[in-house]
Simulated assay, not measured.
Amino acid sequence: MRNNIEDVAKRAGVSIATVSRTFKHPDLVAAKTRNKVMDAANELDFSISRSASVFQAGRTYRIALLINDRSSTWFNAHMYEGLDSVFHPAGYDITFSHIVTSDTRRAFFENLPIRRNVDAVVVASFDISRQEASRLHSMGIPIVGINAMPQDAFSLSISIDDEKAMHLMTRHLIAMGHRDIVFIAFPSKPENVGTLRFSANERSKGFQRACEERGIDPSVILIPDDENIVDNALTRLFDRDHMPTAICCQQDSLAVPLVTRLQQFGYRIPEDISVTGFDDLDSARQIGLTTVHQDPTQMGAAIAQRTLDLLDKKPVNPSHETLDTQIVFRHSTAPVKDVTTS
C-alpha cells in the first residue's frame, strides 16, 4: 500500500498543512521542522507530485517566456537569470517559446487558452496586439512585458525608453561639435509582411529626432542582422565620399567589433571617429565604449517579483515602469577636431 500525505504528517508529528508547505514552499518552514518532514517522507518513500500541487493550488507553476532571438544572446541570457532568480525559489519553471513572426506569435496566443498550461506569459523585446493580449486577460492569465510594446496591452511591464536614450546619445555627440553623424542599425520591416516590431528599432527615431532638432540631415545605414554585420557596415561606410566624424550604433554587439576593425584600418578612436553603442556589454567596458546602460538581470528580477505578487492577489505598484536612461561616458567619444570644417 502506497503511503500518503497523512502518513508523512503522522510520522513527522506535524499537520498535513505543514507537510504540504514543506514540499511547496520549504523556505517558509523552520529548518528543524523541514528536516523532520523530509526524513519522514524519505523513510516512507513519499513525494508530492507536481500534478497534485497544481490541483491543490489551481496553478501550473510554469511561466512561458516568449523570445525572438537565441536564449544565449546577451539580453536574453541575463534577463532569464533575473527571472529565474525569483521564479525558481518560488517553485516555478520557465519554458521558452521561440516567436519568429507575427504569425507564430498569433498562433501561440490562440492555442494557449486551450492548453491553459502556464500561470503567466512574459514577452521580451517585441510587440503583441491588444486582441492577442485580451485572450489571456479574459482568462486571468497575466501577460508581462520586458521592453515590449505596447505597454498598455500588458498586465505588468518594465522597460527602458529606447527612443529617448538614443536621442540623448545623439545630443551628446552634437554637443561635442559633431554634425556628420551616421547611425548604423538593423532594418525594421512593415508589419504587413509578418514581421515583429522590436523595441531596439525605436532607437533610430531618437537619432533622427535629435538631428532634425539641430537642422542636421540624418544619415542612416541599414545592414542585415547576420554573421557579416561588421563587413556590411564597413562596406557601406567606405562607399561614402568621406568617413563621418561620429558613428552611432544601434547596439554594442555591432559597435564593439566595429571599433576594433576601424582601428585595424588605421582610424583612431576617438580622435578621428567617435563611436557609441547601446546596452553596456562587458566587452563595451573593456574597450572603453561610450554607450547606453541597461540591466536585463535587474529588469527580469523586478518584473518576476511583481508577477508573483499579482498571482498571489497582492497589490502591485507600479504595474508599468519605464526606467531612467543612463549613458555611460567612456573614451570612445571626443569633440570633433575642427567644427568649422565638419
Score class of each variant (00 low, 15 high):
residue 2 R to H: 13
residue 6 E to S: 14
residue 10 K to R: 15
residue 14 V to E: 03
residue 15 S to Y: 03
residue 17 A to L: 10
residue 21 R to M: 09
residue 23 F to Q: 06
residue 25 H to Q: 10
residue 26 P to D: 06
residue 34 R to Y: 09
residue 35 N to C: 09
residue 35 N to A: 14
residue 36 K to L: 10
residue 37 V to K: 01
residue 37 V to Y: 04
residue 38 M to C: 04
residue 40 A to C: 08
residue 45 D to N: 11
residue 46 F to V: 09
residue 49 S to L: 09
residue 57 A to Q: 15
residue 59 R to V: 10
residue 62 R to M: 11
residue 62 R to S: 15
residue 62 R to N: 15
residue 63 I to A: 04
residue 64 A to E: 12
residue 64 A to F: 14
residue 65 L to Y: 10
residue 65 L to Q: 06
residue 67 I to F: 07
residue 73 T to L: 03
residue 74 W to Y: 15
residue 75 F to I: 01
residue 80 Y to T: 12
residue 84 D to G: 06
residue 84 D to V: 10
residue 97 S to P: 08
residue 98 H to E: 11
residue 98 H to P: 10
residue 98 H to M: 08
residue 102 S to M: 09
residue 102 S to N: 09
residue 104 T to G: 03
residue 106 R to D: 14
residue 107 A to Y: 08
residue 112 L to K: 07
residue 114 I to W: 05
residue 116 R to S: 12
residue 116 R to G: 09
residue 117 N to Q: 09
residue 120 A to T: 02
residue 121 V to T: 03
residue 125 S to V: 11
residue 133 A to S: 15
residue 134 S to R: 13
residue 137 H to C: 04
residue 137 H to T: 08
residue 137 H to G: 13
residue 137 H to Q: 14
residue 139 M to H: 15
residue 139 M to L: 08
residue 140 G to A: 02
residue 142 P to S: 00
residue 143 I to D: 00
residue 144 V to R: 00
residue 147 N to G: 08
residue 149 M to D: 13
residue 150 P to E: 02
residue 155 S to W: 04
residue 156 L to E: 02
residue 156 L to D: 00
residue 160 I to N: 07
residue 161 D to N: 08
residue 163 E to D: 13
residue 165 A to P: 00
residue 168 L to Y: 13
residue 169 M to T: 07
residue 170 T to E: 10
residue 170 T to S: 06
residue 178 H to M: 03
residue 181 I to Y: 02
residue 183 F to W: 11
residue 185 A to N: 07
residue 186 F to P: 00
residue 189 K to R: 14
residue 195 T to Q: 12
residue 198 F to Q: 04
residue 200 A to G: 07
residue 205 K to P: 01
residue 207 F to A: 05
residue 211 C to P: 02
residue 212 E to P: 05
residue 216 I to P: 06
residue 217 D to T: 13
residue 219 S to R: 13
residue 220 V to F: 07
residue 220 V to D: 04
residue 221 I to N: 12
residue 221 I to F: 07
residue 224 P to M: 11
residue 232 N to Q: 12
residue 239 D to K: 09
residue 243 M to L: 14
residue 244 P to V: 09
residue 245 T to P: 15
residue 245 T to V: 10
residue 247 I to T: 10
residue 248 C to D: 12
residue 252 D to N: 09
residue 256 V to H: 04
residue 257 P to S: 04
residue 262 L to P: 05
residue 263 Q to P: 00
residue 266 G to V: 13
residue 268 R to L: 15
residue 271 E to C: 09
residue 274 S to G: 07
residue 276 T to H: 02
residue 277 G to A: 05
residue 282 D to K: 08
residue 282 D to C: 03
residue 283 S to Q: 08
residue 291 T to I: 03
residue 293 H to N: 11
residue 296 P to D: 05
residue 298 Q to R: 14
residue 298 Q to V: 14
residue 300 G to P: 01
residue 301 A to M: 06
residue 303 I to H: 09
residue 304 A to E: 05
residue 305 Q to F: 13
residue 306 R to M: 03
residue 307 T to K: 03
residue 307 T to R: 03
residue 310 L to R: 10
residue 311 L to E: 03
residue 312 D to P: 02
residue 313 K to T: 08
residue 321 E to V: 02
residue 321 E to C: 12
residue 327 I to K: 11
residue 327 I to S: 06
residue 328 V to Y: 01
residue 333 T to Q: 05
residue 335 P to A: 08
residue 338 D to H: 13
residue 339 V to A: 15
residue 341 T to A: 14
residue 342 S to I: 05
